Amino acid sequence: MGIKVDNVSFTYAKNTPFQKQALKNIELEIQNGELWLFIGHTGSGKSTLINTFNGLIFPEEGDIYIDDVSIKDKKKDIREIRKKIGIIFQYPETQFFLPTVNEEFEYAPKNFNVEYNLEKTKEYMDILSLPHNYLERSPFNLSGGEMRKVAIISVLSYDPDFIIFDEPTVGLDYKTRKSVFKMVKELKNRGKTLILATHWINEFVELKPKVLMLKGGDIAFKGEFDDFISLNIEELENAGIILDKKLELYRKALLKNEIDLANKIASI
């Protein structure tokens, strides 16, 4: 089981002068426990695809299956699907509305009738280097990076099976970005199914994620990380990918078929 995208298409403002097809016959299967990176420029269809996973958008053609349950099945409560899918949107801190950080953490579990686990919440705070005394602080009085951390934990607080980060490091400084990557690795180690729409792929080389690259609503690439990073450099640059020194060395080792060396570089 997992997420199955079955021939999905979607068009914004259909039958108007502003019509734009955002997704075109997308086929994708994500198995439980996998880590996927969704790659592509703004307007490529990444966010639209993500929004179909919990029924924020319903495909006009095709279907989405979450653990073999169609999001279009009117006999099923869409809340049960949304309970399984946790989406951390770009700038999610704009959705805060409660007076304390702890109340923000408690809200989703109450909404989905899930027991709130304060100890697990504190574990997540430790991973993201967010002090426990922030629980009683107002989320509106935190720095931008601290607010992003609170937003992430607010989604994790109801323990969804599938966790989706939509450009999670936008606007963050280096230190905060590293803490987000640390959280992703921890969740992967805990067996969570993870999807990240991001251009920052350098931190994930050791995890060997699968990659979906979209371009103009079409699939431009779908497959293993090593195959993706071995693409023509122009294709990578056109997708907005910037290789740091480590990933450059890793890519060169792969292209020379020096697999042992590539694995050593990945583990550094």
Results as ranks from 00 to 15, higher is better:
Phe96Trp: 14
Asn202His: 07
Ile229Tyr: 00
Glu119Met: 13
Thr121Asp: 08
Arg190Phe: 07
Lys4Thr: 11
Leu118Met: 09
Lys182Leu: 11
Ile268Lys: 14
Ser70Gly: 00
Asp166Arg: 01
Lys246Glu: 05
Pro109Ser: 06
Asn232Met: 07
His199Val: 05
Thr11Gln: 11
Ala22Thr: 07
Leu261Glu: 13
Ile26His: 02
His41Leu: 14
Ile268Ser: 10
Ile71Ala: 00
Asp159Arg: 13
Phe162Asp: 01
Val170Leu: 12
Pro109Glu: 06
Ile66Ala: 01
Glu93Asp: 13
Ser47Val: 07
Val180Lys: 01
Lys192Tyr: 14
Glu203Pro: 06
Gly216Ser: 07
Arg148Val: 00
Phe140Glu: 11
Asn238Ala: 09
Leu156Pro: 01
Lys122Leu: 15
Pro160His: 09
Asn232Val: 05
Ser70Asp: 00
Val184Thr: 08
Ile81Asn: 00
Pro17Val: 13
Lys192Ser: 06
Glu27Phe: 12
Pro17Tyr: 13
Glu119Lys: 15
Glu248Asn: 05
Arg251Ser: 03
Ile233Gln: 09
Met1Val: 02
Val180Leu: 08
Glu136Asp: 13
Asn51Pro: 04
Asn15Phe: 14
Ser230Lys: 15
Phe225Asn: 01
Glu29Pro: 00
Ser230Cys: 14
Asn111Leu: 12
Ile39Thr: 09
Phe53Gly: 02
Glu248Ile: 14
Ile30Arg: 03
Lys120Cys: 05
Trp200Leu: 14
Phe112His: 11
Lys264Trp: 04
Asn263Asp: 15
Asp68Ile: 04
Leu196Ala: 03
Asp67Tyr: 11
Val211Ala: 04
Ala253Phe: 00
Ala13Ser: 14
Leu172Val: 10
Gly216His: 07
Phe18Pro: 06
Lys252Arg: 10
Lys4Arg: 12
Asn113Tyr: 08
Glu104Arg: 08
Lys188Ser: 12
Lys256Pro: 01
Leu172Arg: 10
Lys192His: 15
His41Ile: 04
Leu49Phe: 03
Asn133Lys: 15
Ala108Tyr: 05
His132Cys: 06
Phe162Ser: 01
Thr100His: 09
Ile3Gly: 01
Ser129Gln: 15
Asp227Gly: 09
Tyr124Gln: 03
Asn232Ile: 06
Asn257Arg: 11
Glu235Gly: 02
Leu56Gln: 04
Met147Ala: 15
Val184Leu: 10
Asp77Trp: 06
Ser47Asn: 06
